[in-house]
Design a binder for these strands. Structure first.
Lengths: 251, 251
DNA sequence: GCCCCCTTTTGACAGAGGACAAGGACAGTC
DNA sequence: GACTGTCCTTGTCCTCTGTCAAAAGGGGGC
């Protein structure tokens, strides 16, 4: 928590950050339509583009530290990252998982409320917070997209509070697996019946407020009950979605 | 959850909603400076004023139901309300507590993600969501204030996720009491050492993901340890703030 | 193909907090 | 002042999940 983010330090093996001077960067961007920059006019987007730069982060690298000054924000282009908070004695809670087209960082704020760490290798479109804040203040469409996204995030966070405060281990796991099967599906696609978890067992535990042992036991139980299959460590197959939905609400 | 909010029905004894036609309503408004309408120009605020109406709700009344269509939003002028979510079998989790100058409702969304219920008698400045959304879209300052407030709410929700997922009962109670002593203090004032809880023991339990018995036991223990005093059911006095802070982090 | 390390699973046990039950305190009403 | 309903506290027991420990499994490197 004392460490400060330094791109040169935390991404030594990655290609040097590439300034987004080239307007074609955005044109070729996979997530542009879904990201907050999606509705900007052509020249506005070019202007925003000039403020940002592409960076690559490797799995495990931390992009922002909880409590640090909020100096950067970013769009996720590719990869999955976790948002996490911890107690003084090291217990960790994952407070969010972000996917391509999501926005990370704390605009209009002094300090970063939680750490951001890459779960997989990832690509970001990075802005200094000051530059982004100024741009957002003068471009209401951008602010509005950010508002809608933040309202959605808040709804999701509050739904997760119900899970953390009131659901038992079995319900938590079932809810989590169903959530993943939806979140990992592509734009407009239905929920996936087979997917690769971007999280280790320990990270699943940190999302659900459980221990790794409880996560493992519950998943094994569901496998034995033929509700899911676990062909390898990271793959989950939902065999009986109805029953899983049932477990998610009341075990 | 099937019931629909109807002012005439849920506030029968309250004075009829008063249209805010009179511009002096806002001029006399206690929370204007802190609410999202605080930075609007005089004529914009008058225009917003014409869209809204004042309503009174009594303690215990539910203003919006989880899952209902999102048809209204409001500023809280006076009183305290809870935001709550529940599982199918009736377990409840309070996902937020709102105070004067806070904003409630789900703008730019189809359905209300959680119920809103008055904990004390309250006064609201109420808008239909459609009218508010339209106004916010054409008044970026308002959208920006709403964005900042939503970002703050999201930070708070995520901090609470750490509490729900990773803290034990003693830490939860200590954190809760410290939070209350700050939130109940007036604008700019320091934390209160003595305050009246707006929540019953059951509601405290619903905020913290505990049972009423555990809340009662932990608070009694802290009283015995002379860390707090509980002169009556609703009053809390913090006798040893340092030790309470200590308990909040690691019990 | 083999080895090693790290993650995951499984087992045994303990403890925090939940469930149930009963008693006590307080506010409002008559 | 007595009554009554509601909220809160206290007691007892039990279970779910955490803790500690060890074994098993898988993937990467050689």
């Amino acid at each position: 928590m004392m460490m400060h983010f330094d791109l040169a330090q935390t991404a030594p093996a990655a290609p040097a950050p590439v300034p987004c001077q080239d307007a074609s960067f955005c044109q070729r961007c996979d997530v542009r339509a879904r990201a907050i920059c999606g509705t900007l006019e052509e020249d506005d987007r070019a202007a925003l583009n000039r403020l940002g730069r592409r960076v690559t982060v490797q799995a495990g690298q931390t992009v922002m530290w909880e409590g640090d000054d909020a100096t950067i924000v970013a769009n996720v282009i590719e990869g999955t990252l976790k948002l996490s908070a911890s107690t003084g004695d090291g217990r960790e809670q994952i407070v969010g998982v972000v996917y391509p087209s999501d926005f990370i960082g704390r605009p209009f704020g002094r300090s970063t409320p939680h750490s951001v760490t890459a779960l997989t290798d990832a690509r970001l479109c990075l802005f200094t917070r000051g530059a982004f804040d100024g741009f957002a203040r003068t471009h209401p469409e951008l602010g509005h997209r950010l508002l809608q996204r933040t309202l959605d995030d808040l709804d999701r966070a509050r739904a997760w509070m119900l899970l953390l405060g009131r659901k038992n281990a079995r319900e938590k796991i079932a809810t989590f697996l169903l959530d993943m099967s939806h979140r990992l599906a592509g734009e407009g696609a239905g929920p996936l019946d087979s997917f690769a978890l971007p999280l280790s067992r320990q990270q699943v535990a940190d999302v659900l407020g459980l221990t790794i042992e409880t996560v493992s036991r519950q998943m094994t139980d569901m496998k034995r009950a033929k509700i899911i299959d676990l062909p390898n460590r990271r793959t989950v197959e939902i065999l009986d979605r109805d029953q899983l939905s049932c477990l998610a609400e009341a075990a």
